[in-house]
Design a protein around this nucleic acid. Sequence first.
DNA 1: TATACTCCTATCAACCTACTAGGTAAATAG
DNA 2: CTATTTACCTAGTAGGTTGATAGGAGTATA
Lengths: 141, 141
Amino acid sequence: MISTRGRYALRVMLDLAENGGAGYVPMKEVAARQGISLKYLEQILPALVRAGCVEGVHGRGGGYRLARAPELFSVGEILRLAEGDLAPVACLQMGAAPCPRAETCRTLPMWREYYDLTNKYFDGVTLADLLGAETPDEAKG
Amino acid sequence: MISTRGRYALRVMLDLAENGGAGYVPMKEVAARQGISLKYLEQILPALVRAGCVEGVHGRGGGYRLARAPELFSVGEILRLAEGDLAPVACLQMGAAPCPRAETCRTLPMWREYYDLTNKYFDGVTLADLLGAETPDEAKG
DNA sequence: TATACTCCTATCAACCTACTAGGTAAATAG
DNA sequence: CTATTTACCTAGTAGGTTGATAGGAGTATA
């Protein structure tokens, strides 16, 4: 399941895209608009900064802004940064201890294929797709 | 993420398909073969019985057996019984309080489409597919 | 130098997961 | 009828995760 971390990260990115324009937007404003705890958002954002998705500027007049245009961000990229992983089972998570059953596991290939499906789906949706009020389908077609 | 409940349920069904034949298999044996706590399995199985996926018989010579042939079980059916739901976000879970943002939510259509994708994928894989040592792809093609 | 931001770290309550434990009910074997 | 074997029911529990809150340090601007 996608937790609030991933969902909030997405909402912040969308908020920056809509309300950002060219300048920096303080998280305080985003938190108020989105109805999310400022302190909680402050925990989520550094990962997006380190990955070069948003740029943060300290001090008065500072805030965050998107590092690229919305059509250049995939949802998959943002979710992976916030959630760490989109693996459907523990044994496929990065850094997981290799499962001793892996060789003979009847279900592992299925989990792998679903994992691929998941990554491909979310990599195929961009922030720009979500900003248009259309469904991702329509955006793609 | 698919938890052990769903994964164990699948493994039990596969074990019954492989080692069951026509008769009843005691959970004790399945637990030993699969290296899973018997007491934990006993918690998972009633849901499969109630749904008519497996049949349990008490007493000496009893145990469980599949209620249908392996090709008539989809993985999706079993996972939903064990996990309750395959919803990727809380607001899509059955019985969830309706989200006040639903009307204007930019991301909800995407979650919905991914939810559909998930159900369709797992509904398209059968126990029989997993029993053949092939990948689900090959089984389908 | 005061202010307004980002960013770091610690803490915490609530909840969930994965399991353990101890039974009761039902069926069969002797 | 009794002992045994199995399914099935219910409660508890250690450890981890989630979703926050809190306090402050670092940094840029006016």
